[in-house]
Design a protein around this nucleic acid. Sequence first.
DNA 1: ACCTGAACACCGTTCAAGT
DNA 2: ACCTGAACACCGTTCAAGT
Lengths: 226, 226
Amino acid sequence: MSSATERGPRVLRGETPLTPELIVDAAERLTAEHGLAGWTIRKLATELDCWPTVIYHHVGDRAAVHQAVADRVVSRMPCPEEELDWREWFTELLLGARPVLRAYPGVARWLVLRGPIVPSALRILDRGVRVLQRAGFGAEAPMIYSSLLNAGMLLIMSYDERDAESASTKTTITEALGAYRDDERTGLAAMAEYLLTPGGTEPFYAYAVQRAVDGAQTRLAELHPE
Amino acid sequence: MSSATERGPRVLRGETPLTPELIVDAAERLTAEHGLAGWTIRKLATELDCWPTVIYHHVGDRAAVHQAVADRVVSRMPCPEEELDWREWFTELLLGARPVLRAYPGVARWLVLRGPIVPSALRILDRGVRVLQRAGFGAEAPMIYSSLLNAGMLLIMSYDERDAESASTKTTITEALGAYRDDERTGLAAMAEYLLTPGGTEPFYAYAVQRAVDGAQTRLAELHPE
DNA sequence: ACCTGAACACCGTTCAAGT
DNA sequence: ACCTGAACACCGTTCAAGT
């Protein structure tokens, strides 16, 4: 707080009083730009031109602000129609969730760790498990749901965190990979080639989701022989 | 530093001078107990009864100490024999890696984010990709390798981070789940039942690894029709 | 070569007041 | 009800010295 030009209570400076909504709006903007782990309570306060304690007064501690932001973002995730075939249902969910979550780095991590406490996530969870029960997964429906969701959410989380790495770490890794391109260790060379091909890694998310769905399909066939 | 009883240079107190090895030993112990993110440079210094700057002198900054610890742990991961069938090779790797990595929380995360810079990880990578090439995955071997490794490493990383959550967050989640056990939303109720069954979640890691291997197997069959 | 000690620029959070 | 301002107990890291 304490801008050089204006001092004293907001209301005396002709500004509207802060509300939880205004604070979470600002936190959401900061998250879009720097990720959930990329701002601090003190920076959020500076952004709002208020004291850090005002945030505590209106919203709560750091975890409470994180939850408020995550809540909003998760509510924008798609929840496909229950009538869909289970394979389409999960493909649509996981491919649709990616752009939403990637626009707010760190929210995927929040969802993985604290998922079962936000209502819009519960709606997806309930429907997803029911879709699997209907498909014939029986008692394994919750495990299959977990393995499919993990395949998507954990991957998004790892993209978020790789982006947050320092630029120097990233160039170190890229340089190391470059050197392996012609390595006599042929497996390593193939991996370096793949990772360094521009855009070569982009379709990987959809590829991984497809493998996860295939893995579940194999299990379904095992559960219903002949 | 500065114990109440003894002061002044270590050497004058009859103690051996610190070395990089001794410092990393202590960091490894702290990691086993609290995880990589669970200690600070200042706490490590207190543990060693020295000033934080001594760590910088012998090893480097926080990232350097992390890398030194991760390096040691990763070198203890199993690297199965190249002659194995690809399914056995990855099953053995991923089931064998879990206890090693879980004993040092946070190392799985380090490996996911900075993997390709530690030699013992490169050995596994090279061999794994070659095993897949030999099995017939061709140009997709690097992508299949990534999807299989992710299935294991990201899951271990999520276990580590869930453990690190505050006790209050964890009881909040458990309580929420308890309430859903008899929920009319049948999918949600099935998930709550599954998550709350004691030990019910333990076999999940091996289950998820098996699904990932199955998914790769399906792709292999697609690549080599009839 | 190895270590001391102070300092800088940060954190999240709490508390006692003010209007 | 809303905000001010100071304080507490932390961080990682740097720098100038000392022996």
